[in-house]
Amino acid sequence: MSAGRDHRELSELLGAWALDAVEDAERAEIEAHLATCARCRAEAEEHLAVAAALGNTAAQPPAGLWERIAASLDDTPPPLALEPRHRRLPRRLVVGLAAAAVVLFAGLGYLLVDQQRQIDRLQAALLDDALARAASVALADPDSRRAVLRSEDGTVQVPVVIDATGTGYLLADRLPPLPEGRTYQLWGVSADTVVSLGVLGPEPRLVAFRATIAIDALALTDEAAPGVAVSEQPPLAVAELPV
């Protein structure tokens, strides 16, 4: 009941919180506090890990349950059959393609809406760690396509790998940062189109992108933020992709 608990009182509740053993009002208060208190956040994460360990059992799921889940996938509208419990801790998202514009070269006039949606989902699912791991899986895969985006003078070299499913990873952390108001943008080039694969921001590191159409080459440009539909810049670096 007591509104406005302080750090000490809230931190005493962290164990109970991790076990879902607080009341709703308390949970809301704790989670608001976690958003601003790194020390409590660190403790909460530790408790949560132990709580999850407690939940481990050796049970077998009942026969047929997967089939029922699979059957409901197609006609499940995205959110949300389940009332969410907002207990996620605040977290960093990878900057990169979140705001990516996927547009086609002028004159071709169709928009890859689905590609955009997939990029959003993909990017949202990728956090630094997961992204690095996914990229290393792609790098290790003999079926992935590898290339290096190079500038004419050789000063810019950006490795890229595209896995067999068309997800690419740009290892962009050695790109020089751009001044304010500028952004890197990645383009896919095929026989008759140039597609924006993502607006990367002024200081990209590891970036994921989707290459759903057949792409023969990649190009990197420096554009005015927030990126452009059609580039008029000469590419900073280009790479031809192996077939």
Binding site: A49, A51, A52, N56, I69, L73, R88, R133
Partner: peptide, 26 residues
């Protein structure tokens, strides 16, 4: 289904997928 709809809710930095699913389940 929730993992299917909102895979972005899984934060690999915070722990294993098993943990995440058990926390959701609990």
């Amino acid at each position: 289904l929730r993992l299917w709809d909102r895979p972005d809710r899984y934060d690999a930095e915070r722990g294993s997928l098993r943990s995440f699913l058990l926390v959701t389940c609990h």
